[in-house]
């Protein structure tokens, strides 16, 4: 076919923009993800609900115990923050999943990856921003509720520094890592409802299955399922007194970090090779 345009020769002087070209890097992706996470209402909502759960439930338990006759002299007081944090984990998982899956749901992901073709950079920025938001919020909330509990339940023994550290920093790190796992699952599943369901299953299923495994020959499996279930690991972080099997001390944090890292590695691999 004859194509006259080919004889048109030299192209028209091409356009050059007055906007300076500066090489973008991870910091720019972080700024972008920070704008994203702070500018949607679901972030504000989930974090508010999380605050109400952690502080509210922690306070309720402390007040109830204080007015009762229960003997708490030898209890680790900070443990009473456990129930609020366990429920708040649902908020963290939801936020983690939504950070990624909402982009797929709205189609924003195509715009995001057009603006930043390095998918690893996008995922790294998302994971970092999300992790820090959850970690800092949980740290503040657990510190607040811990301080309130200690001041209300002044008849109990004061927590040691190690107990304080694990019940605040450790719990926050654990929860933020659980959030990272949800974020990775969000990348893998790409569907908000599906990914949130999967994560709730991850949290609840081992315990539920363990309950039904009341068979003599499977006692070991039952015990392992219970010990390594997420609620139990979270509880161990508060207090491992009397725990003689399964993770102890700081181990839940390492386990959760390793699981989240493995899931994120999968998310990187899939995101880099998959069509959007």
């Amino acid at each position: 076919m004859t194509t006259p345009h080919q004889q048109q020769g030299a192209p028209v002087a091409s356009y050059s923009s007055p906007i300076p070209v500066r090489k973008a890097h991870l910091g720019d992706a972080l700024a972008s993800e920070w704008t994203k996470i702070r500018s949607v209402r679901s972030t504000i909502w989930t974090l508010s609900v999380m605050a109400v759960l952690i502080v509210g439930i922690g306070l309720l338990i402390a007040v109830a115990l204080n007015s009762s006759e229960a003997d708490i002299a030898n209890e680790q007081v900070l443990f009473f923050g456990f129930f609020g944090v366990l429920l708040a984990s649902v908020c963290v998982m939801t936020l983690g999943v939504l950070t990624v899956a909402s982009e797929y749901g709205t189609g924003m992901i195509r715009t995001t990856l057009t603006a930043c073709p390095s998918r690893s950079r996008v995922l790294t920025a998302k994971a970092l921003v999300f992790f820090l938001v959850v970690f800092v919020s949980t740290l503040v909330l657990t510190l607040v509720v811990g301080a309130l509990q200690v001041s209300i339940l002044d008849t109990a023994k004061a927590p040691t520094n190690e107990e304080w550290f694990r019940s605040t920093f450790g719990v926050s790190f654990f929860l933020a890592s659980l959030g990272l796992l949800s974020l990775a699952v969000g990348v893998l599943i790409r569907h908000s409802a599906g990914a949130i369901t999967a994560m709730i299953g991850v949290v609840l299923l081992p315990m539920v299955v363990a309950m039904f495994l009341a068979v003599e020959s499977l006692a070991k499996v039952q015990e392992a399922l219970f010990d390594y279930s997420i609620p139990n690991q979270l509880g161990v972080l508060y207090t491992d007194a009397g725990v003689d099997s399964g993770p102890q001390g700081w181990e839940p944090v390492w386990i959760m970090t390793a699981v989240a890292a493995a899931a994120l590695a999968g998310a990187y691999a899939v995101l880099n090779s998959r069509d959007v």
Binding site: T35, S39, V40, T106, M108
Partner: peptide, 16 residues
């Protein structure tokens, strides 16, 4: 529609 509906027009563009 490849934008996040819950975000303002300004913020949608700002993050890009």
């Amino acid at each position: 529609k490849a934008m996040h509906g819950g975000r303002s027009a300004y913020n949608n563009l700002l993050c890009l």
